[in-house]
Design a protein around this nucleic acid. Structure first.
Lengths: 136, 136
DNA sequence: TCTTGACTTAAAGTTAACGTTAAGGTTTAC
DNA sequence: GTAAACCTTAACGTTAACTTTAAGTCAAGA
């Protein structure tokens, strides 16, 4: 089964020009072409794309994804290296997630504080004259 | 208690020129100056910065942070709006986190797959001639 | 046959978020 | 009192990741 760039675009939510851009950048260097030069994506290409999106959406830079792809092209001798790349990336993502959760708590605190302030404001804004630009 | 730009830089891990950039972009528009024009950050400024970093590090664009700051400057009438901005952002961050966790699973799967492949490869790479560029 | 629309390329443009440089004023240490 | 280490502004440069444009090829339908 083969897919046109448009079909892949719809499946992946990546616009055609982005798919071409990724290919140009070496993220997907094995896409087949028809006689007239039209891209024909295979199921395997789609699976690759899925991994690429996964890495990209967890913050891996395109440059680094390209390195990963280049290693893959070199065959099984690079399996260990690829593995450790993914493990490093995994750790980074875990750190990101923990950080995010921490920040989320802070945002939550702020929301509660603002909600309180808003209620006080509704109750009657006259009895408090303290001026602040809202950082507290 | 007041701080120089360098002290704030050390406290926040934001370089001086970034602090000036943020100020220029309207993220911190109330920093006091000495007679000779040198920035004197107050505790309140630091708290603001901490919120700004929080929003920035969870992916809010500087433009949007500026909107938030502008609302804050308008006083308590904007409390509700600010609150809903934060709530919207909170939801986005939650979505991000869930997405990340999903992708993390996929990365984990890949790692396991590669580890398996690597073991097979070590055991003896001769009995399998299937060629793949490694997407599976 | 003509034209419409999807595909192709190369190359230039855009945006966000800094980073760097130049040219100069101020404060602190010896 | 002078040199180093700060500070200031303005303006230009960089990087990543697209995005758009221009110019062309190709196949199908009226």
């Amino acid at each position: 089964m083969n897919y046109t760039i448009k079909q892949v675009s719809e499946k992946t939510n990546l616009k055609p020009h982005v798919l071409r851009y990724y290919e140009r950048e070496g993220l997907l260097p094995f896409v087949d072409r028809s006689e007239s030069g039209i891209r024909r994506y295979s199921e395997e290409d789609l699976e690759w794309l899925s991994l690429i999106c996964c890495l990209k959406n967890t913050g891996m830079a395109i440059k680094q994804i390209r390195e990963f792809v280049e290693l893959s092209l070199q065959g099984k001798e690079t399996l260990k290296e690829r593995c450790s790349m993914l493990e490093d990336h995994k750790k980074e993502v875990e750190v990101q997630i923990v950080g995010m959760q921490k920040y989320l708590c802070k945002v939550d605190h702020k929301i509660k504080y603002f909600t309180d302030q808003y209620e006080k404001y509704l109750a009657g804004s006259s009895e408090n004259g303290a001026v602040s630009h809202g950082s507290d």
